[in-house]
Nucleic acid binder design. Structure first.
Lengths: 243, 243
DNA sequence: TAGTGGTCTAGACCACAAC
DNA sequence: TTGTGGTCTAGACCACTAA
């Protein structure tokens, strides 16, 4: 079941173009080869090229101009966060130019809290597998997060290092669940004492609180997490293509 | 120059499907007609149907299952904010189920502040057209925003009610500029005295601060705005499709 | 097995901007 | 005028799921 079919051609094209942009073959601000040229070079149809370029344009990495050409977006090549990667804190920290590290504080089976029961649509007293983790950027603690998933979904027990996987990997390998979409609420809060010490902050300054709920394709909530985010240390930045 | 060509077919299809979802013709949680059926009903190719459905899926409004069908996402039909609409505060408030109102506090020509000069890449002493606006939800003030655009971009002077247009309309009609993408920084702050009174809040609680910079297709920053957002009153919620 | 969505192609025509 | 990206079609084949 670990078998995977080869990536779709359009995804391979996107990856290749991103690699060329990052390596400087397509320099920031310059024009890419035309769709027809790329199609000929790679031996694929123009439609496939267009699908790949549309993905890059949606991320803001290139700007397309009818009648002119496709340009590398010099500002967004180095933007630390695109929206799609916002909940993958390891990558977020790395993309911000810092060295990421993750620390597993707790990992155990326990009854769901009231908030977790409500978010995950659980019966009273149902159990969840909870993870408490701390993320570091250059050895400075920046994010504290508490996650919970229904214990009934688990097909096999969590292993010690499972807390270091992405949500995708974790849900698929332990629960055979695919994430379909997520809803996130963003708030500004004053941290409590636990959070202050966990983030090693001395004075009371507001923090960002991210509350995320992940659904599978059957529209059932499968993963819930609350994160306290030190926006002074890391910065929460999103980019969004407009067209 | 106010002429517009008819909307692309795929956009018309998306609009039609959204309308059918909102009207209940396609009820939450149910399966849509297959791509082939829709193509036949509307007299278009399956590709066009797929493009339209892909747009809805990217917004999380439907969930697509290979080998099964396309389902209306019962949770997201009523989610107040999709990411793409996040900076259109009027629509955001309306989608949250409140009655929006906008109040123009100031609108004038003045030298750029240091922050504005840096963000908009202006020379020292260059002038900007500044707008200060306040947004209400059910007559409760929820957002205070200060915007600036370089005065050099203006082709005609602003008119009294220009502050009520969307950023797209404003930039196009007064500056002939199209927005290509935007970068947004989100922070948690403690409000100053002005903000407190502007939002009619008595006690000092943290607020969200949204800093947005809009670029045109030539990759020049054209619009800069800082907004203080009362997340306790309105809630900042985003949805993101995963696939 | 039948029917669904997923991928890919080849080709046509259009709108737009640079030259 | 030329070449770019934007739109749309018709059709083929594949992967997956439910019955």
């Amino acid at each position: 079941m670990a078998l995977r079919r080869p990536k779709p051609i359009t995804q391979q094209i996107s990856d290749l173009l991103i690699e060329r942009i990052h390596s400087g073959i397509y320099a920031p601000g310059t024009r890419l080869p035309s769709e027809s040229e790329l199609a000929e070079e790679l031996g694929v149809s123009r439609s496939s090229i267009r699908t790949a370029l549309a993905r890059l344009a949606a991320e803001g990495m290139v700007i397309r101009k009818q009648g002119d050409g496709t340009y590398v977006n010099e500002h967004l090549v180095k933007v630390p966060t695109r929206f799609g990667g916002m909940w993958d804190f390891m990558r977020l920290i790395a993309n911000s130019g810092h060295t990421p590290r993750i620390e597993l504080l707790e990992q155990h089976l326990r009854p769901a809290t009231a908030g977790e029961s409500q978010a995950l649509h659980l019966e009273a007293g149902a159990e969840v597998v909870a993870l408490r983790r701390r993320f570091f950027a250059d050895e400075r603690p920046v994010i504290l997060t508490t996650s919970a998933m229904p214990a009934s979904l688990l097909r096999e027990p969590l292993r010690p290092r499972d807390g270091e996987m992405t949500i995708n990997e974790l849900m698929w390998r332990r629960c055979r669940q695919s994430i379909a979409y997520t809803i996130i609420d963003i708030h500004a809060v004053l941290p409590d004492e636990n959070t202050l010490t966990g983030l090693q902050r001395e004075h009371q300054a507001p923090l960002l609180r991210l509350e995320q709920l992940f659904y599978n394709k059957d529209n059932r909530p499968v993963y819930y997490s609350i994160s306290c985010y030190d926006d002074k240390a890391l910065g929460l930045r999103l980019a969004q293509a407009w067209g």
